[in-house]
């Protein structure tokens, strides 16, 4: 690896937190953080600040918009049916979350690249699934009727062309999607639902890994299964409560859809 001679400065720490560093510089900063507890503390502080700002102001996103602000009347959001199974999952939310946390801690034992994928992709995908797939009121931010706007917006924000894949053949209709903060980047989440009311979510984000194309991997924690894989700069995680066999069929369809440049 070639050496970057510039010393790590406070500006680097900010840029690191904000995802502004190129790969080489990022690795350099990470090596620096491992050796300098003060700098690592600084980074934790900046992250905590970002997180606190989100905690303070994100609730505004869920307030109903005053009528005076809406330039034209929008159709009332459709209500989604949801299965008893999902309701039970919502009630058991605490147990599920603690199960996932155990999952993460276990994997911290070995700080391999694989565990970075778990922390940055799989775990947030599973959490996001648990939070939104059980939501009866606002499961998605933009609904399937505005699919073009959704695709355009997500592509703009993620600086790459991204579209919700069509899974109609497998009986899953698009409910809609949303943009989410992920560990150190942002992620897109698409939600699908079948006639039985079962919901699956597809979580897509940029990942920085040496692995260009990975095989399908599967993780399951207390009822939520996640298939994940890496293709070029993007990581994909498909979460659902379908069981491994049925979920893999969907994962394959999604993978084909993205690989086909759809």
């Amino acid at each position: 690896m070639s050496k970057d001679p510039r010393p790590v400065t406070d500006a680097d720490l900010h840029a690191y937190v904000d995802g502004e560093l190129d790969e080489q510089r990022r690795l350099l900063v990470e090596a620096h953080l491992a050796k300098h507890p003060g700098a690592a503390e600084q980074v934790r502080g900046y992250r905590q600040l970002n997180q606190d700002l989100h905690s303070l102001f994100d609730p505004v996103l869920n307030e109903s918009v005053p009528a005076a602000l809406v330039p034209a009347v929008r159709a009332a959001p459709a209500r989604y049916r949801w299965s008893r199974r999902l309701q039970a999952a919502a009630l058991a939310g605490v147990a599920l979350l603690s199960g996932l946390t155990g999952w993460l801690l276990h994997d911290r034992q070995d700080r391999t690249e694989a565990s970075a994928t778990l922390v940055n992709l799989v775990q947030p995908a599973a959490f996001a699934h648990l939070v939104y797939a059980t939501d009866t009121q606002y499961p998605v931010e933009i609904q399937a009727e505005q699919q073009d706007a959704l695709n355009r917006w997500l592509s703009d924000r993620m600086h790459t062309r991204i579209r919700a894949p069509g899974l109609d053949e497998l009986g899953f209709e698009l409910v809609g999607g949303r943009l989410l903060p992920s560990t150190n980047r942002m992620a897109a989440q698409f939600m699908y639902q079948n006639a039985a009311g079962e919901r699956i979510t597809l979580y897509v984000r940029r990942v920085a890994t040496a692995e260009q194309h990975s095989a399908f991997h599967y993780r399951e924690a207390e009822g939520v299964g996640v298939f994940y894989w890496i293709d070029g700069p993007m990581g994909y995680a498909l979460s659902g409560d379908l069981g491994k066999q049925r979920l893999v069929a969907v994962a394959q369809a999604v993978q084909r859809s993205f690989a086909g440049g759809v």
């Binding site: 869920n62 809406v70 929008r74």
Partner: peptide, 22 residues
């Protein structure tokens, strides 16, 4: 509603969040 007006409406919650913080 035109497609771009649609896009505008979609942005309102985020504009409100930013303005509230500001």
């Amino acid at each position: 509603m035109s497609a771009s007006a649609d896009l505008l409406v979609v942005q309102i919650p985020r504009l409100r969040r930013y303005a509230r913080a500001l």
